[in-house]
Every structure is written in C-alpha cells, then in structure tokens.
Simulated scan of single mutants.
Amino acid sequence: MFKKTTVIVCAAALSLLTAAWAAPRAELGYKACLAQHIAQRKAFTLTHPLPPSGFAGNGTAPPAEAGISAPSVPVLMYHYITPSRYNKEPRNRSIVNAEAFEEDMKYLHERGYYTASLQELEDYVHGFAALPAKTVVLTFDDGYENNVAYAYPVMKKYGFRASMFVVGANVPETNGPFDPLGRSYVSREQMESTADVFEFHSHTYDLHYKTEQHCGLVISAAADADRLAPDIRRMKAAGIDTPYFAYPFGETNYRAVYRLAEEGYRMAFTVKDGYVRPGDHPMYLRRIAVTNETDVAAVLEGAAGAGH
C-alpha cells in the first residue's frame, strides 16, 4: 500500500512540475511553487487519514413533535446585526438590519420551526437522531456585541437557540455601555448572561485575518496548520473548548482540518452555500449566508426538497 501511495504521489508531482517548467519564464517561479505545493498537499492527504473521532452520539433525542425527519437542514449564517438607521454600509452583505432579522425570526416562529443545537445537528449528521421536518440552525460569526443587543432579545422572545462563533482574542471580561455605532464584541459576562439562547464556539483565538502564505497567495491565517496548532491551545486555555468550529472566511484545507481533528474538533462550518444532510462530512458543513435581501421562505422551501 505504501509503495502504491508513493508511486501515485511521485507521478502527481512529476506531472505538475512538468507543467510548471513548460510555462513561460515570467510565470515559472509561481507555477513551480504551486506545483510543488499541490504535490505536497496530495502526499499529506494520502499519508495522513483523519484520526477517528470515536464519536458515538451525544444522546440527543428528537423532539416529541418531530414527526417526519428533515431530509436536509438549513444552517443560517449571520454576522453583524444593526438597526437600519445605523447601517452606514448598506451594500455590505455581512450587515443585516435588525428589522430584517426580526422579520426572519417572526417568520420561523409563525411557521413552527425548531432551532436545533449543534449537538443535535451533529447527531443528525451521523444518523444518531432525527430532526423535525421544520428544523433550522442559527449561527452568528465573529462575536459582535450587537448580536446580544439586537438578536438575543428577539430569539429569547420566540424561545429560539443559536450558536455564536467568537474570536477569543476579541472577548473582553466585561463591556461598558453599548455603542450602536461602534464595533464591539461580546464579553465573557455577556456570554454567561445569554447562555439561555446562545452557545459559544471557536472562530479561532486570533487568526481571523488574511496573510500571504504559499506561493504568494493571500488566504486565511487559520488555513496555515502551523499557526493553527498553537492558536487552538490558546482558545482552549481561554475556556472556549467545544468540538465545534467555524473557519474564518470559510477557508480551509486538509492540513488544517487534520490539525483540528487531532485536537478533538468533530464538526466545522464553511461558508459554502447549501444545506446539511445526514452523511455529510462533519468537517465541511455548508451554510446559507443571510443578507437583507435573502428570501428566507425560499431557503426553507429548498431544504424540504433538495439538500445540496
């Protein structure tokens, strides 16, 4: 098996390097670098299968009203929530007006949607539990304080649950008076006081930025497995130690996924558009980015039919 793998890797490397050397001289450095990187990546993938998680279910039971199990589940992704009067960047698709968010939640409530926890979603993905046909998962990336100011009261009113992926280095112990025009982050004190709605997970400790990496490509710092390893340790030391993760900018690669799996992460989210279904790879789950223009009714209707 080892010999076969070695032959495959060598053949792939030779093919890629040949293509690189055939490129025009001006592109030679980049092409050769990229070919080497791809060959190394393929070799790592072939020789480093993901470590088994040993996951045997969280023991979640489907709600009594489950009925027919959902064929797929939409995981909705929000970021920054603010009232329209404070939205100074209306074209920024990561900013959702608080009024639009409240309409989304009202729509879910009036139609009887169940908001699943990540433990329940994990059991659903692995086939350990069913979820109601009308199920949605609510996620918030980056840990903005306005999620607490504007989203939390609405979700609490409707009895909803949600997951927030925070950047550990941005989390203060406590916050002063909330400034709706500022950019502040949820504090540890707020994490405790909103735990009846939010569960909190990792968006890295301090890797939510882009940096130049292999061959001059500028990508998420969290996609660098060598940076990710110590960052994971810092996040766990900060007390945010769950098996769930969201990739900054949705960017990752096999080395980074392998590192996360080594450290006990069992489920992670991208920003690739689509639904979650039983049997999906738990480290590459899709989500649906919600903007002010998102037709939530259409998103929910899609979940009932197709999945991906």
Rank of each mutant, 00 (worst) to 15 (best):
K106L: 14
A12W: 01
M191S: 12
M105K: 03
H203W: 05
H308M: 06
V299C: 11
E99V: 07
R286I: 11
R286S: 15
D231K: 02
E145Y: 04
D280F: 00
E89L: 14
C215A: 01
R266E: 14
E89F: 13
A303H: 06
Y114W: 11
Y144T: 08
S163F: 02
V186E: 02
A61V: 15
H208R: 05
L46Q: 04
S163C: 09
A195H: 12
K272I: 07
H281R: 10
N253F: 08
Q40D: 15
P177R: 09
P49D: 06
L34N: 04
Y30T: 14
L46K: 02
E102S: 15
L17V: 15
P52M: 03
G250N: 03
H37K: 07
I288L: 15
D226G: 06
K3A: 13
K236N: 11
V197T: 10
I240R: 00
N146D: 15
P63W: 04
A195I: 01
R183F: 13
G239H: 03
A246N: 04
A162C: 13
G216H: 04
E199R: 12
A56Y: 00
E65F: 14
N292R: 02
K31T: 03
G239A: 10
P177M: 11
A261F: 02
I68F: 01
T211V: 14
T47N: 12
A12S: 12
R25V: 15
F2R: 12
H48A: 11
P83G: 11
P230V: 05
A64F: 04
L121E: 05
G279E: 08
T174C: 06
F245L: 10
E262L: 14
N175I: 11
A129D: 03
R25L: 15
D123E: 08
W21A: 14
G250C: 07
Y265H: 08
Y86G: 13
Y265W: 07
D123L: 13
N92W: 02
K3R: 10
